[in-house]
Amino acid sequence: MRQNPSFAMTDVGEVRRIIEQNPWATLVSSTDDGLVASHYAVLLDDTRDDLTVVGHVGKPDDLIHGLGDRELLIVFQGPHGYVSPGWYGDRPSVPTWNFVAVHLRGVPELLPSEENLRVLDRLVARFESPMPEPRMLWERPNDPEFVDRLERGTAGFRLTPTSVTAKRKLSQNRPTELVDHIIRELEDEGPHHNPTLAAEMRRANDARA
């Protein structure tokens, strides 16, 4: 991802927020047969306060990606959406796409079974907890034998990035009053109604102010 200093996200807390709110990630690696990509939920490592992440892949994706041996790129996509040139008023302009994205690169370490089980348990709890009647990993009708089989079919990993590219392209290069107008257009009902992107733009605009 080409970086632009005007759009760079350098605050670790903000990058962690994007990862936390958007855990469905794309995993990309370069293999002898070319590029390969997979899609998995990835979480921040709750034992660290940096950008270390943990996750798992289903076997044999660990071998396909060469986990533990080759560099892995993990892409987190935050809020994004279309911005119409008509929202810029009577001035020359073209359509654009506002977005937030985080790229983490590094060679992951494979987790032993005990740690992998903890990651799997966290993943289930992360998404199941809001349910009216949560079904956690170790609860019936699951039994220890079932959970052990599940763990053996996956490969857990931890990645402490050696390279981080975080970009927040949210019209920061436009005047504040124009950004406010774009936010209102995104909040209004219409073909490109996008309150999530509007909220992210408002957050960036407030920080700039």
Rank of each mutant, 00 (worst) to 15 (best):
H56K: 00
V75K: 05
V75A: 05
A41C: 12
I18Q: 04
D33G: 12
T52H: 03
H56R: 03
T10K: 14
D11G: 10
A41W: 13
V15K: 07
L51C: 11
H65C: 07
S29R: 09
R17E: 08
D62G: 06
W24M: 09
E14Q: 13
I64A: 11
Q77M: 04
R48W: 08
L43N: 11
D46A: 15
E14L: 13
D69R: 04
L35E: 13
S38W: 13
V53Y: 09
D46W: 11
G13P: 06
L63Y: 08
T52K: 09
D49A: 08
P5L: 00
P5K: 06
I74D: 02
D61L: 09
R16F: 03
A41R: 13
G58T: 03
V36R: 13
D69I: 08
T52V: 10
A37I: 02
F76T: 03
D69N: 04
D50C: 10
T26N: 02
I74C: 02
D69G: 00
S30A: 15
I64W: 04
Q21G: 15
V15G: 05
I64H: 04
D45G: 10
L27S: 01
L72S: 04
K59L: 04
D61C: 09
D11A: 08
G13K: 11
Y40D: 08
S38H: 07
L43W: 12
L43F: 14
P60V: 03
P23C: 02
V15H: 04
V53T: 06
V15D: 02
E20V: 05
L27P: 07
I64V: 15
V15Q: 06
V57W: 08
E20L: 12
R70W: 01
A8C: 12
P23V: 02
A25M: 01
S38L: 07
V75L: 03
V12T: 13
V12R: 05
D11P: 04
A25Q: 01
D33M: 11
T52N: 12
Y40G: 00
R70F: 03
T52G: 10
V36P: 00
L51F: 08
F76R: 07
V42N: 06
E14A: 15
R16P: 02
R17V: 01
P60C: 06
V57F: 02
L44E: 11
T47D: 15
G34C: 05
D33F: 11
L63I: 07
I64D: 01
A8G: 09
S30T: 14
T10N: 15
V57I: 07
S38I: 01
F76C: 01
H65W: 14
D33N: 14
G66S: 05
D62Y: 05
P79Q: 07
D46S: 13
E14P: 04
G34Y: 09
L43I: 12
G66L: 01
N22G: 02
H39E: 01
V28Y: 11
I19Q: 06
I64L: 15
V54H: 12
D45H: 12
G55H: 09
T31H: 10
Q21R: 14
L35N: 10
A8F: 10
P79K: 04
P79F: 09
Y40H: 10
R48K: 12
G68F: 01
F7C: 02
I74S: 02
D46C: 13
R17M: 05
M9C: 07
G68C: 03
Q21L: 14
